[in-house]
């Protein structure tokens, strides 16, 4: 049970929690946070494999991918948040209309 296995298991669980979060929560706000948690889980999986393949230093390729992924995920989350706020301003709705996803 090395270090990386703990984190890769945790990444699978966090990804599943994020996925469940998207479907069970109804508020826009929480769905956006759920997608960010999903992203966190995936990046944890990447870096745990980087730690497993470490030699003199940990595998730099997954680290670079995770940094790029984090910035992309934050940009998408900022856009989603802006959309949610505009909808809340225009219509006062904070959840998707009644028919579920």
């Amino acid at each position: 049970m090395e270090t990386y296995q703990i984190y890769s298991l945790a990444s699978a669980v966090i990804f599943a929690v994020g996925l469940a979060g998207i479907f069970t929560t109804r508020l826009f706000f929480k769905k956006i946070i759920a997608t960010k948690i999903m992203g966190g889980g995936v990046f944890l999986c990447f870096v745990s494999f980087a730690e497993r393949d470490a030699l003199a230093f940990a595998d730099p390729v997954p680290h670079a991918m995770v940094i790029t992924g984090i910035v992309v995920a934050v940009s998408a989350a900022a856009f989603a948040l802006a959309l949610a706020r505009r909808i809340q301003q225009l219509t006062g709705q904070e959840t998707f209309p009644v028919e579920e996803e």
């Binding site: 966190g40 990046f43 870096v47 730690e51 470490a54 680290h63 940094i67 984090i70 934050v74």
Partner: peptide, 16 residues
């Protein structure tokens, strides 16, 4: 930080 990914730790803490 624990997994030795210091760049990612700074990026995660600062951006996310």
């Amino acid at each position: 930080a624990r997994l030795g990914a210091v760049d990612v730790a700074i990026a995660e803490a600062a951006i996310a």
